[in-house]
């Protein structure tokens, strides 16, 4: 791994995103609109306070998963990936470059979405608001890492987009948002224990319900990060210099 090449790649990816203002607008605006709708739908009830924070963690995960898997797929199908792998660029440089670039976007997205949820929609977490942002950023990184990994299994953009419901919706059903995880049938509870989004939602729920759970939250964040790193490592296995 060469940090100079990793940074050059991250810069290149960010310049590509900058060339596409509509994508930036969608990245920033869509989570806010969804959170705003949610707050409006549940206005006058305590539901928004209960699920607002977890959804603040799920939206960036979903958005980054989609954006990254399509971006990487484009790189594979356009031949630029094959060309890049004939240069001194390492596989780790490529993956970390993407993770850094989309991580930077995730920070902006998380700041704006959290700010909107707290100041405009009146989300009032019991724990520190800063932790909400941290968890949202880590969730977005998780989405990026899984997007990089999953794109290896898609040959077309149609397939890549289909991976979203295939990959994300089961996690959404099992993450504890609809039914608390310990009230699920035992088998589903076990399955939810090995899905990263469960820990992301656990962390968000902790921040929104307890004032002194910072240690526990960081523990959950650590688990989510471990999943992200695992996905990046698996992703590096799917990047082959030599192909058939």
């Amino acid at each position: 791994m060469k940090p100079r090449l990793t940074l050059a790649t991250a810069g290149r990816v960010l310049r590509q995103v900058r060339a596409d203002p509509r994508t930036i607008a969608l990245l920033i605006v869509v989570p806010c609109v969804l959170i705003g709708l949610l707050a409006w739908v549940f206005s006058g009830t305590p539901v928004f306070d209960a699920i607002g924070a977890p959804l603040l963690g799920i939206f960036p995960f979903v958005v980054m998963f989609l954006v990254t898997s399509v971006a990487t797929l484009r790189e594979r199908t356009s031949g630029t990936l094959e060309r890049l792998l004939t240069t001194p660029l390492g596989k780790a440089d490529f993956l970390l470059g993407y993770a850094l670039a989309f991580g930077a976007l995730a920070i902006v997205q998380a700041l704006v979405a959290t700010g909107f949820a707290v100041w405009v929609c009146g989300l009032d977490p019991v724990g520190p608001t800063g932790l909400l942002v941290l968890v949202a950023v880590v969730d977005a990184l998780l989405g990026t890492a899984f997007g990089l990994f999953v794109s290896a299994f898609a040959r077309t953009e149609f397939q890549a987009v289909q991976f979203m419901p295939a990959f994300v919706l089961p996690q959404f059903l099992l993450c504890g948002l609809l039914v608390a995880r310990d009230e699920m049938p035992t088998v589903l509870h076990w399955i939810s224990n090995v899905l990263p989004l469960s820990y992301a939602v656990d962390a968000m729920t902790l921040v929104s319900t307890s004032a002194d759970a910072t240690g526990q939250v960081l523990g959950k964040v650590g688990i989510v990060l471990a999943f992200a790193i695992g996905a990046l490592l698996l992703g590096s296995l799917t990047l082959r210099r030599r192909t058939a």
Partner: peptide, 23 residues
């Protein structure tokens, strides 16, 4: 490669700057 493999959403100079930094 046979089909052009540069980044369509970057300018010529931006593309070359990236490839130059790689080598």
């Amino acid at each position: 490669t046979q089909s052009p493999s540069v980044f369509a959403d970057l300018t010529v100079t931006q593309n070359l700057r990236y490839f130059a930094s790689l080598v």
